[in-house]
């Protein structure tokens, strides 16, 4: 199996879907000959033409809205926000038009919204956000967040095939830092199914996206404790059974994410555990997240805000002592 970076795996996923189905097309800013701000769509315009790799004007509502319209008319659009932060400018089309379409009129909206997200590179308050939780209050949207090249490709395939609007959170920090084996050809990673990134029996760290790697690093050798790392992969709808199975096994849970704290995905996971697995717990469920502040620009400030390996280690140690 070839080794690809996380970014190359996304590109490979896009290419496979476009080869597989003529109705799949991409739209977004600077994604054509330029290949996108991060070069995720590099080479696609040359292979598929600029009609299917459409360089749109700077108009997020039009991008999302046009994707909705094309989707209900039988196309399978994959729209890119240059940074996930800009989805705020197309928010209305997603939460009011796309999300409610099927519930209101039985009309499916098979579209993928690519959202390059996350910080760690001095992107500042407008290029570093993790806005995934915004969309959990808009029933009708699915949200995925791959953490490995293998899942980046497989979740792209599933997102494209799913008949619902799927928000695909791709973590910018992983783009070129992470390599892994990725199978040739098409394959799908099932939606709403967690992946156990490492098995363990004493404590579970639940994470997604780039934080899966922070969790793995932090618990690689934690005083010899057997620590399980669960990668959520799909944030909505959550794999509640997958989460609870690990909780029942280890009885101690740290929930980790890079997004801000209040009403984040972690809060939802904690509530789920409190409601469904209270009897199984041997200690409080602990959250490690960014605090409720915008992501600052300057490196020491940004480091102070984004969850670091040591924080995860400390949280696990404290909980293990229970």
């Amino acid at each position: 199996m070839p080794e690809l970076t996380y970014l190359e795996a996304i590109t490979d996923g896009l290419r496979e879907e476009m080869r597989h189905d003529e109705s799949v097309f991409c739209l977004g800013q600077d994604i054509g000959n330029f290949g996108g701000a991060f070069k995720v769509t590099e080479g696609l315009a040359a292979e598929f033409g600029r009609d299917r790799v459409w360089d749109t004007p700077l108009a997020e509502s039009a991008i999302v809205g046009a994707a909705v319209g094309a989707a209900v008319e039988g196309m399978r659009p994959i729209a890119e926000m240059q940074f996930s932060d800009f989805i705020a400018c197309g928010f209305d089309q997603l939460v009011n038009v796309a999300a409610k379409m099927h519930y209101r009129q039985g009309l499916a909206v098979p579209m993928v919204m690519r959202l390059p997200s996350g910080g760690g590179f001095s992107g500042g308050p407008f290029h570093s956000q993790n806005p995934e939780a915004w969309f959990l209050q808009a029933p009708g949207l699915k949200v995925v967040a791959p953490s490995t090249p293998e899942d980046a490709k497989g979740l792209m395939a599933s997102a494209v095939r799913d008949p619902n609007p799927v928000l695909y959170m791709e973590h910018k920090h992983l783009y070129r830092r992470l390599r892994g084996e990725v199978a040739d050809g098409r394959y799908e990673t099932p939606l709403s199914q967690v992946r156990v990134a490492r098995e363990g029996s004493e404590l579970t760290v639940i994470a997604y996206g780039a934080m899966v790697h922070t969790a793995l690093e932090a618990t690689e050798d934690l005083d010899g404790a057997g620590i399980e790392v669960v990668d959520l992969r799909t944030l909505c709808p959550l794999d509640t059974e997958g989460i609870l199975a690990s909780v029942r096994k280890t009885s101690k849970v740290v929930v980790l994410h890079e997004a801000t704290r209040s009403c984040g995905i972690g809060a939802e996971v904690c509530a789920l555990i409190a409601e469904e697995a209270f009897e199984d717990l041997d200690g409080p469920v602990v959250r490690v997240t960014a605090p409720d502040v915008p992501i600052p620009f300057s490196p020491p400030l940004e480091r102070a805000v984004l969850p670091q390996v040591d924080q995860v280690r400390d949280a696990c140690r404290e909980l293990l002592g229970y």
Partner: peptide, 22 residues
């Protein structure tokens, strides 16, 4: 027909998408 939402004029970008497909 693709039914309207309350927010105006959200259906204008959506109609562009229908036309784009054609």
């Amino acid at each position: 027909c693709v039914g309207m939402v309350s927010m105006l004029p959200d259906m204008a970008p959506v109609a562009c998408g229908l036309a784009l497909a054609f």
